[in-house]
Computed example of a mutant assay.
Amino acid sequence: MRDPYDILGVARSADEAEIKRAFRRLAKKLHPDANTSDPKAQDKFAELNAAYEILSDKDKRGQFDRGEIDGDGKPRAPDYSGFGGAGTRRPRGFSGFDGDTIFESFTFGPEGQSGYTRRGGRPGAGGGAGGGAFDDIGDIFGFGRQQRSAGGGFSPKPGENVELTLPIELEDAVQGANKRVTLPSGKQLDLKVAPGTLDGHRMRLKGQGDQSFEGGVAGDAFVTISYAPHAKFRREGDDLRSELMLPLEDATLGAKVRVPTLSGAVELNIPAWTSGGRTFRLRGKGLPKAGGGAGDLLVTTNIALPEPKDADLEALMRKRRDGKAS
């Protein structure tokens, strides 16, 4: 795996907020749902999440920066070449090094910026008595970013909530459906959309939001339902509108025709001598209402001439027109 800093496009000195902003920006760009034509979209998104998992965790980030783990989070083999040759362990009590370079610890300052603090082995060099060797131990273990509770302990800050939008077909709103949603983390969940679900309905998925940086509980994910545009129906509040192409003979003589609705086709009685532009109301065949029930479906007729051209009909129409002119 590549360097997590390169994957997120941030500097090694980036703080938690910068890392989080970079992840959110790239998560939207690389999300599999937004790249359905890219066969490697899932792998790219997984790589992004793996990088974020390392850099958003203080301990893992420190281990990576110190070379203790690789970009996949796996431990690296220790390097003892600086202790008199490869494979040679440092002897107990060994003191043959400069006291200013014996011990280095990765720390986080109050703003979350990273850096190295040198620890010497000599008094006065930052590592012995009076040297303040552990004056920043709270930062080393992440306490500087936590809030004290009333009892004197530490109350970890919870993770942030996540907002998602789930488009559904109008038929799904009326009949109900099972839908799959992909979280920013890459995790996929199956959700049940109940019959009669309203546009803008908001569902809470507890504990499915962002993970806490400090060991607290995860945030929640909120999924908002959004009605997708329909090829046959046009929305007007709770009502729907559609058009019906009516053959000339049915418009003239009357007929019973099948009309599509969100819950299946129904039979509509067309009276004789129905003109184009006439609207029929099918009650309760529209969209769910907030107070219960459903709106109506308004069907407007359009007259369709025969295909191919009918010579007899054309002669009849010419005769009628000539008769009116005389």
Rank of each mutant, 00 (worst) to 15 (best):
P4V: 07
G9S: 11
V10W: 01
S13D: 15
A14Y: 00
A17V: 12
E18M: 03
I19P: 01
R24H: 10
R24F: 10
L26D: 07
A27R: 07
K29G: 09
P32C: 05
N35D: 03
D43W: 13
K44G: 02
A46N: 11
E47W: 04
E47F: 04
L48W: 03
L48T: 04
Y52L: 05
Y52T: 06
D57M: 01
K58M: 05
R61N: 00
R66F: 02
G67C: 04
I69S: 00
I69T: 01
P75F: 02
A77F: 02
P78N: 10
Y80L: 12
Y80Q: 14
S81W: 06
G84M: 04
G87Y: 13
P91W: 11
G93Q: 09
G93F: 06
G96M: 05
G96F: 00
F97C: 13
F97K: 14
G109H: 06
E111C: 06
S114T: 15
G121W: 12
R122G: 07
G126Y: 02
G127D: 01
F134E: 09
D135L: 12
D136I: 12
D136A: 13
I140W: 00
I140S: 00
G142P: 04
G144C: 11
Q146P: 01
Q147P: 04
P156A: 08
V162W: 02
E163I: 10
I168R: 09
L170M: 14
R180G: 06
K187A: 13
Q188N: 11
Q188R: 15
L189K: 15
G196F: 00
G200E: 06
G200C: 08
G200S: 07
H201A: 15
K206H: 07
E214R: 09
G216P: 02
G216E: 01
D220C: 01
F222R: 10
F222M: 09
V223P: 02
V223I: 09
S226R: 15
A228Y: 05
A231N: 12
R241P: 02
L244P: 03
A255I: 05
A255H: 02
R258S: 15
P260D: 08
L268T: 04
L268Y: 00
G276T: 10
G277M: 13
R278M: 10
R278F: 05
R278L: 08
L287W: 03
P288T: 05
G291Q: 15
G292Y: 04
G292H: 07
G293Q: 11
G295H: 08
L298Q: 08
V299I: 12
T300N: 08
E307V: 11
P308Q: 02
D310I: 08
L313F: 03
L313M: 12
L316N: 07
L316R: 14
M317T: 14
R320L: 14
G323K: 11
